[in-house]
Nucleic acid binder design. Structure first.
Lengths: 157, 157
DNA sequence: CTGAATGTTCAGTATTGACTGAACATTCAG
DNA sequence: CTGAATGTTCAGTCAATACTGAACATTCAG
């Protein structure tokens, strides 16, 4: 059970590293990676501690974080005291909708900046204005992309 | 010179905070924010230390990082020992092309994972496969968006 | 009721990494 | 040559935070 899984676990670790680069704790990334390939897709907290070799407390905190980000969900089975975690079916669309929220924040940050520069000559405002336009553009277009992808995948599962 | 700039500097700080959330050091974000609104658009290292109240060494390191990310560039003026920094004209397109590189890395990480799951039944590979497809989709579509934006802005500056 | 199984909270540890200040080049003016 | 101005490198400090282990609930089986 251990040997054949080893390359998989290394892959999961790498997955964790990637997510660490984008600011999330590594354990959260590893959980996500593991839930991406684990069999069965539902894994209990103790399954996770065993597979990923991290403490219960860490699993508890990281799983809650992933839940709050809308990336995983808890499932409870009748007659089973354990809780199970699994990826949400719409994980990636969700994750990217989050990104769109960041675009919105950036765009409105730019708006506030432009207000502060109100009295300044136009050529001084040009840079900030381009910044604003850029984020506004992606704020508008990326949801369309997500929509496209969802529609493209509708008939499949 | 100090009082009227104060709200601007608070804005710059906030800009730094936003960039900190995406994993960059705060000082780098503040430099970028400042170069976005500063007058003139070219700022020397000592201008930056004075405006942002951070050490020379910090400016030196952070500016180099921003340079490597392709976000700012150095300008030297004949007869002036100082170097000046300014934003690159294609900052945002550049920053997002960077993001596309991350999509590529993710997609190829998924490819490697799929290879490891080669022997597994299809329904086990489904999650990872969807992950792969998602990133492949954005890897392909986001450059088109960037292209669109560049073309849309061509006639303006 | 007792104790095992599950899960959360919290204090303490350890690591990472951003930032400062000083020492070290380099270039140029006088 | 001397010294001021500019910039880089490096060692040390400090803060943030991910993670562990223990203590603390809660639930249920026997």
């Amino acid at each position: 059970m251990n040997d054949p899984n080893q390359p998989i676990m290394r892959w999961v670790d790498e997955f964790g590293l990637y997510f660490e680069e984008s600011g999330l704790p590594r354990t959260a990334g590893r959980i996500l990676g593991w839930l991406l390939v684990a069999n069965p897709p539902e894994q209990s907290a103790s399954d996770l501690t065993e597979a990923l070799k991290v403490s219960k407390s860490n699993i508890s905190a990281s799983a809650r974080m992933l839940q709050q980000f809308g990336l995983i969900e808890r499932v409870s089975r009748p007659g089973d005291r354990k809780d199970y975690y699994r990826m949400r079916s719409d994980v990636w669309a969700n994750a990217f909708l989050n990104k769109v929220g960041q675009f919105t924040r950036m765009r409105s940050l730019a708006d506030r900046g432009l207000k502060l520069l109100d009295a300044a000559p136009d050529e001084d405002k040009a840079r900030l204005n381009e910044f604003r336009e850029f984020y506004a553009f992606f704020e508008k277009e990326v949801p369309k992309l997500i929509e496209m992808w969802i529609r493209r995948n509708e008939g499949q599962s």
